[in-house]
Design a protein around this nucleic acid. Structure first.
Length: 500
RNA sequence: GGGCCGCUAGCUCAUCUGGUAGAGCACCUGCCUUUUAAGCAGGUGGUGCUGGGUUCAAGUCCCGGGCGGCUCACCA
């Protein structure tokens, strides 16, 4: 990419604004000064109207000029800060010459500070009558059109800064995202969970079934992987005596991208010693409902077409029972041939699917998953697809696991953690076997993790919650890109931009 | 990866079966002292994503490439 490409952005309007920079400097005005002393945020101005307006208190606010409506000797406009937007009014007779001249040179998009007093216009709009203006940062690129704003999704994702300036609802989504995370964190702390940080760069990846990103450490001259989960590290900490731990974990998975998958995403994982998956189920539904209540003031949400009620208790349905409801067959002890027969009967393409667990999983995602709109815990999965979960206490071939579904999304994943080191080794070895048979996302053996288990891990309940999906549900966003500030994109100018 | 759709002024969009581009907003000039998608008059601004091809002539038709959206597949 050459400089020329950059200079062209904004066209002639950019050139005009650059010329203004020079003219401003000639007037003795620094278009990029160092600080500004605000007296109020715009929200505080609105809240303080009762005293600020009648007493004509001079206020100082700062923000971005969003519009201007000139009328010759006067002008109206709007200025916007972090907390809101307010109208300003400037009249040449009210201000000194220099202020008027400066105002005439400010453009929509500039950052400015304003001193003035409040009044209400004929139409009763609360307005700041300008006494003085200070230019705080000259924008040399114009903002998008005031009415339609920035619509193009590609530009909105690539230039999130502009998206945030002009599309207020985008700012709102990301504020909500933060509120959600804060609320989850509060909930965990109230339950005496300790927040920790574990490695993102891992010599061995694990804790989920996914292909990793691979990188290299020069000094150590070794391959490192970006974590696909922090599960195995958190459980090491449980072994170490941290009885309740959690981490908001940025995970990286080198797989397909679509409406609900970004290569990097945020997962909450938490582990509680002496809990089992039943404890975790109650803990999660309570957490979800509490967060929803905090964010929306209610536990019922609208997501696309659906009205969903998150109030606990959520429906519980075992994995095999859910399949039986759709197929009429209990597959709990069925062998591969039997499962294939059922798949064929339901016209499910099982080409490339190998192994009993994967087959069952395929059946489940085709037949059951799309119909799970109201919150539902799917429980007690087949052991083949759950190498880190403990054997079910009463049914052979199953593990103690649950996955809650909302609006057809899997929103979490949890188990009674496998803490038997001998069994865990056997499960890892099974994974390696399946990997040799062609499944390339199976779990590698982590010897150090096994050693940790050999020191004894208390019975433990573990939970992973997809934070991005939680945000999607609570903000009625149909794409994960709408809840990640900077979603992954190809370079603007194709592969050439990738070169050094 | 497949299918469908899109890419034209800074932004939002037009341009019918091919005849070298147009509007609104923004910007510039002038008028306008309570407007709010302010108004009125005039004006500037284009590598039509990119590279080929067909044609007297391509934004438009054909082929390759790029980026994006939706969707299916893959994938938890």
């Amino acid at each position: 990419m050459s400089d020329r490409d950059n200079t062209k952005e904004g066209g002639r309007e950019r050139d005009i604004r650059i010329e203004k920079l020079a003219r401003l400097r000639e007037m003795g005005i620094n278009p990029y000064p160092y600080r500004f002393q605000r007296t109020h945020s715009i929200e505080e101005v609105r809240k303080g109207e009762e005293t600020l307006l009648p007493e004509e208190v001079e206020i100082a606010i700062a923000g971005r000029i969003m519009s201007a409506r000139g009328h010759g000797h006067t002008s109206f406009g709007n200025i916007k800060d972090d907390t809101g937007s307010i109208q300003f009014y400037i009249k040449d007779a009210d201000v000194d010459e220099k202020t008027w001249a400066l105002y005439k040179m400010t453009d929509i998009g500039d950052i400015a500070g304003i001193w003035g007093v409040l009044f209400r216009t004929r139409t009763e709009e609360l307005t700041v009558k300008v006494r003085k203006i200070e230019l705080l940062s000259k924008a040399i690129l114009p903002l998008p059109e005031k009415y339609h704003g920035l619509q193009d999704k590609e530009l909105r994702y690539r230039r999130r800064y502009v998206d945030l300036i002009v599309n207020d609802e985008v700012m709102e989504v990301f504020r909500t995202r933060t509120l959600i995370i804060d609320t989850v964190r509060d909930y965990l702390r109230q339950h005496n969970f300790l927040e920790v940080e574990t490695p993102i760069l891992q010599p061995l990846y694990g804790g989920a079934m996914a292909r990793p990103f691979v990188t290299h450490h020069n000094t150590l001259d070794m391959t490192l992987y970006l974590r696909i989960a922090d599960e195995l590290y958190l459980k090491r900490l449980v072994v170490g005596g941290m009885e309740r731990v959690f981490e908001f974990c940025k995970d990286f998975r080198n797989e397909g991208m679509d409406r609900s998958h970004n290569p990097e995403f945020t997962m909450l994982e938490c582990y509680a010693a002496y809990w089992d998956y039943n404890d975790m189920m109650g803990f999660l539904e309570e957490m979800y409902a509490r967060v929803c209540e905090k964010v929306l003031g209610t536990t019922s949400i609208k997501y696309g077409e659906h009205e969903i009620d998150l109030a606990p208790p959520w429906k519980r349905l075992t994995f095999f029972r859910s399949l039986e409801e759709k197929t009429g067959v209990d597959l709990t002890v069925a062998d591969v041939a039997e499962i294939e027969k059922v798949a064929k009967k339901h016209n499910i393409d099982i080409g490339g699917v190998t192994g009993r667990g994967a087959l069952l999983d395929e059946l489940f995602s085709e037949l059951v998953e799309p119909g799970l709109i109201q919150p539902t815990f799917i429980t007690d999965h087949p052991v083949e697809i759950s190498p880190l979960a403990k054997m079910h206490r009463s049914t052979e071939g199953l593990v103690e696991r649950f996955e809650p579904y909302i609006a057809g999304f899997e929103v979490a994943n949890a188990f009674t953690e496998l803490n038997d080191p001998i069994d865990q080794r056997a499960r890892f070895e099974d994974q390696v076997r399946m990997r040799k048979e062609g499944a390339d996302d199976m779990h590698p053996i982590d010897e150090d993790y096994l050693r940790a288990l050999e020191h004894g891990m208390p019975p433990t309940g573990g939970l992973g919650v997809g934070i991005d999906r939680m945000v999607m549900l609570l903000t009625d966003s149909s794409s994960i890109r709408d809840v990640i500030l900077f979603p992954q994109m190809r370079p603007e100018h194709g592969r050439e931009a990738d070169k050094d």
